[in-house]
């Protein structure tokens, strides 16, 4: 490890990976909530056109990509908000136009090679310069801060747009801010993960987190942990195994998702087999249902004609008889 940290480009790469791992899942959770998981991919396509323009004009590719991705983000939201039937086609024209322009211009520019293009599309360790790290760091800190401050508003708008609008929240404004933050993440992740793979790091950690968490708050916390684990772990593996960093990071995220789904499905089966269901009834237990409430171990049982019923998803579990409570459920 100290050998790796002795290399300047690896210090840069690890720092960039940490920032990407933090910021991508934070923004991604709201894209999942809005069912727009693939939108980051489209922004990545357009960002490539920005990179090409940067290479051609001698401007910093990162900054040029940032401008292109933000313009794309604003266009996506405004086209969506107008709700016309051709919105889908308009987005396709923009995305594929962007990536095609990028590929052609980069191929023609004297300052780049095919390896260069691959690095932008799929990520590479060697390409992260000191200047890049500074820009990327500032952008990532902005994304994390903005997302944390606005997370409840993003949650409300993404969860129920109509209610948010009716209650007076500025829905379009928050959607535009979220789109711009997504564009910034795409650019932050461009060097390490690559423009074609960044969407995976916004979405997959959230998919895994949903298998583990029971609340939105916990989902975000798990997703950030998983995101950092995958991006930093992926960079280390990529160095040892001499593999492209973006692909390695995403494969790690996919592997973690599959392992978690198999594990949680297995656990659920064991739990289903080991818990007793009460006979089904139409009556709904609640604070006003007339049955005696027995709070214990973080939930409430209801004394239903000598049976203790505890709500569990769509049905009630049998938690034994009230008089045997002391045996069945030891109090702490």
């Amino acid at each position: 490890m100290s050998e790796i940290l002795g290399l300047e480009f690896m210090r840069h790469a690890l720092l960039a990976a940490l920032l990407v791992g933090l910021s991508a899942p934070l923004v991604g959770v709201f894209l999942v909530q809005r069912r727009m998981s693939l939108i980051g991919d489209g922004m990545g396509h357009v960002a490539l056109a920005g990179v090409a323009v940067g290479l051609l004009t001698g401007a910093q590719p990162v900054l040029a990509a940032l401008v292109a991705a933000i313009l794309a983000a604003l266009a996506i939201e405004l086209i969506r908000a107008r709700g016309t039937t051709s919105a889908d086609v308009a987005l396709a024209v923009m995305f594929y136009g962007g990536i095609a322009l990028g590929v052609v211009v980069i191929a023609k520019s004297s300052a780049s090679s095919p390896a260069n293009l691959t690095a932008y599309l799929f990520g590479a360790l060697l390409t992260t310069t000191r200047a890049d790290v500074l820009v990327v760091g500032a952008l990532a800190v902005t994304v994390v801060a903005a997302t944390l401050v606005l997370r409840q508003r993003f949650f409300a708008v993404a969860g129920d747009e109509e209610f948010a609008r009716a209650s007076g929240l500025a829905v379009l404004r928050y959607n535009l801010i979220l789109a711009v933050l997504t564009a910034v993440v795409v650019v932050v992740a461009m060097r390490i993960v690559g423009l074609l793979l960044i969407s995976a790091l916004m979405i997959l950690p959230n998919a895994t987190a949903q298998l583990l968490a029971r609340s939105f708050r916990a989902t975000m916390a798990y997703a950030v942990g998983i995101g950092v684990l995958c991006s930093v772990g992926g960079v280390l593996i990529s160095y040892e195994a001499a593999t492209p960093s973006g692909g390695t990071i995403v494969l790690l995220a996919v592997g973690l998702f599959l392992a978690t789904s198999i594990l949680t499905a297995g656990l659920a089966r064991v739990r289903r087999a080991s818990h007793a269901r009460a006979e089904s009834h139409d009556h709904e237990h609640g604070p006003h249902c007339g049955h005696r409430a027995i709070p214990h171990d973080g939930h409430v049982d209801y004394d239903h004609d000598g049976h203790r019923h505890a709500a569990h998803q769509g049905h009630y579990d049998e938690h034994g008889h009230p008089e045997h409570a002391a045996e069945g459920h030891p109090r702490r």
Partner: peptide, 25 residues
């Protein structure tokens, strides 16, 4: 506003408290 149920996104996990607290925003 109390909309019909289908206006609530079910694509992420959220608790009763988390959803209700958005009414305060």
């Amino acid at each position: 506003y109390v909309p019909q149920r289908h206006s609530l996104s079910a694509s992420v996990r959220a608790t009763v408290t988390e959803v209700v607290s958005t009414g305060r925003l």
